[in-house]
Nucleic acid binder design. Sequence first.
DNA 1: TTTTGTAAAAATATCTACATTTTATAATTT
DNA 2: AAATTATAAAATGTAGATATTTTTACAAAA
Lengths: 229, 229
Amino acid sequence: MAEPEEKNNLANLAYVALKRDITEGAFQPGDKLLMSGLKERYDIGAGPMREALSRLVSERLVTAISQRGFRVAPMSIDELKDIYFARAQLEAMITELAVQRGGDEWEAGVIATAHTLSRVKEVQNTDEMLGIWDNRHKAFHYAIASGCGSAKLMELRETMLDQAERYRQLWLREMVFSGEALKSKQEEHRELIDVLMSGDAQAARQLMFEHMMNPIPIIVRILESRGLA
Amino acid sequence: MAEPEEKNNLANLAYVALKRDITEGAFQPGDKLLMSGLKERYDIGAGPMREALSRLVSERLVTAISQRGFRVAPMSIDELKDIYFARAQLEAMITELAVQRGGDEWEAGVIATAHTLSRVKEVQNTDEMLGIWDNRHKAFHYAIASGCGSAKLMELRETMLDQAERYRQLWLREMVFSGEALKSKQEEHRELIDVLMSGDAQAARQLMFEHMMNPIPIIVRILESRGLA
DNA sequence: TTTTGTAAAAATATCTACATTTTATAATTT
DNA sequence: AAATTATAAAATGTAGATATTTTTACAAAA
């Protein structure tokens, strides 16, 4: 959406595919990423595959040790807390700027995406519902943040979102299974909109920070139940 | 310093060398990066070279268009302003956290690096002096930021520093040629230390923001004199 | 003459296949 | 068991093949 030029070489295709496979859990944290297996899975040579892996290393989704190959980056409660804290601070700061700088157009975008989000219906397929809710939820928060007016801050936000994605995925499943949790989120979003429209930038900042920090205990519980330190 | 494992494969060596060549101006913004030339310059095959280029693309120092190769990322006044603004916001936020969270050890680190910075002497070689001052200046600001206690925020800070580096380089040369500008910076640093030690996190945040924004007009002037939009 | 279009040629980017180097595993000896 | 050597597996690199883009040469039209 924001990329001006198409990038259709094999390295890029592999990058996109592997990134999705990691965030969606097809590869588990800590898994060794064997070149032979990757080559076969993505039907590609070693060169382009290394290129894709390198990019994921810069994004912290993959770790590399020279001459010893690549692994899916580990997950931990400590990292979860740090990522969510940094992300909450960043998003709160961006929100404050958005309230100060955002115009009528921005307000309209926020209201519109909030409405779309509130209209997600329970449907037959739970996984499909989850995908739709997640997309609209992301669009809502993106609409809020976009008012900050800084492309670079939006880029930083994107990198944090990428790093949080595996943890967010855990939280998401918990959400859709619990109608109560979903109700609670909807209420938070309503409060968020109120304070955004009120123009009180400081209050908006504070509320956004809390909103972003809320999932932490839930995710910690899930990780603990899986025996992760 | 923060990297746990050595990475001595050719792709990494080329990555480091090319990154330095770009930030130090051996390649100019917009320059085409021909594979044939790069292979010769860094004495390396196309595979590892592409790997290095890919990483620099994620860091926004290089741009890529599929099937059309790589270029040094362009520089512009608009980008300068956005990078410096985002960086100032981030650094100000981190400073506020550092004041709130930093302990005695943090304070000692700030004082120590500030002292070292203040003792840079004018020496024979101006370029050498510039390098020393820059290193100590970076160490001083790093010491301040490190008090925030978040590895992820420190990573974000690093990425912004990398993106600002080419613009900072312009500002640096201006500084050492003007004793007056240098004096003024020293004064700013003194004020910064005072407010950091006072424990007033809000005031520290505000002052850091201003400190980080100050170079913008100087760099704009330099870019304009070079005919950059 | 200038412009525009076209096709061949050259330059360039990209990829694969194989060669080399390094690490991991198994077997053997002390 | 510990150390050593042999073997297998894996990572990394190069060279050359293939595909794409850019340049050039030239012709037709304005």
